[in-house]
């Protein structure tokens, strides 16, 4: 190749870009192996579910065969785990702090459920979550995974909040990094990042956490940012185990922005009343917004 002077200069100078040192390859490999395991775990779960769906379409003979198969399946280690799992539930107005054998701390918000196997921290660290919980995951060799109806979350060691309720899915990270996967996407959330979706999530849903003390419920506060009044009220119902009724159904569509102290029910209701400019009446467990 014949180069003129300008090209020669470009040729020389283009090698001078400074690149960061290559990370420790063994450590990267260890992390990669963990991610590969998570991938295999998820694979197993989908397979199991699809076989359940096949059942109703089968003929009689096959049903008998499956019945025998089921008896054998019950004796298998997989079924053992399935039936010998631990379940922790909270009702309205209940929070529960769970300390797992690996040192991981889970604070379960009201009306929520987690399920995990007896072999937790022996050959896996997988749990299932319905509802909302705050996680402080201890780092160890086993990847920590959370299954929700919206997708799977996998982490190594970090603190974050997950809300997986009927009205939507929300995840915010206070420390470290986590990975979220659903059928179509796999995205990373870092410290200070947050997603809130109604159905499936993707990369573009990532935003920064806008509130100071996240998550609000751990700090006994309700953070509202153009939150619909009925959404806030169902949160109040769960937190204080009351029922809230609206005299005027149109009120449900009001949106509220602000921070509400959530330590005392009367204070909460008073604030809501101020914000909506509507009075309330509290009788036993039923609050009516007039």
């Amino acid at each position: 190749m014949k180069l003129d002077n300008k090209e020669k200069l470009i040729w020389e100078v283009s090698t001078q870009t400074q690149l960061p040192p290559v990370p420790d390859k063994d450590a990267v490999w260890d992390r990669l192996v963990q991610e590969m395991k998570i991938d295999q775990n998820n694979f197993g779960i989908t397979k199991k579910e699809s076989s359940w769906k096949l059942w109703p379409n089968m003929g009689n003979k096959i049903n008998i065969a499956i019945a025998y198969g089921l008896i054998f399946a019950l004796l298998s280690p997989l079924a053992y785990n399935f039936f010998f799992t631990k379940k922790i539930l909270t009702g309205n107005a209940q929070n529960e702090t769970i300390l797992l054998s690996d040192g991981t701390k889970i604070i379960l918000n009201s009306k929520s459920k987690i399920i995990y196997g007896r072999n937790y921290n022996i050959d896996n660290r997988s749990i299932k979550l319905t509802g909302e919980a705050y996680f402080e995951v201890e780092k160890n060799d086993l990847p920590f995974t959370i299954e929700t109806t919206y997708g799977v979350i996998s982490v190594l060691g970090t603190s974050f909040n997950v809300r997986s309720r009927e009205d939507g899915f929300e995840v915010g990270v206070n420390d470290g990094r986590i990975k979220l996967s659903n059928e179509s996407y796999s995205i990373h959330l870092s410290k200070g990042q947050f997603i809130e979706v109604e159905s499936s999530f993707e990369e573009k849903d990532i935003v920064d956490i806008s509130i100071k003390e996240y998550p609000d419920w751990i700090n006994q506060k309700f953070y509202c940012n153009e939150t619909r009044l009925d959404e806030l009220c169902s949160e109040i119902e769960r937190t204080f185990d009351i029922q809230i009724k609206f005299l005027d159904q149109n009120l449900k569509n009001l949106t509220i922005t602000g921070i509400i102290e959530a330590s005392d029910l009367n204070d909460v209701l008073y604030t809501v009343s101020l914000l909506t400019k509507h009075k309330f009446k509290l009788e036993d467990d039923i609050c009516t917004i007039l």
Partner: peptide
């Protein structure tokens, strides 16, 4: 990847995700 994204942590993530 580091040449492209100019960030060591991000390059590490993308490289790992590529192999995954």
């Amino acid at each position: 990847v580091a040449y492209r994204v100019r960030d060591s942590d991000l390059a590490e993530d993308i490289t790992q995700e590529t192999f995954l």
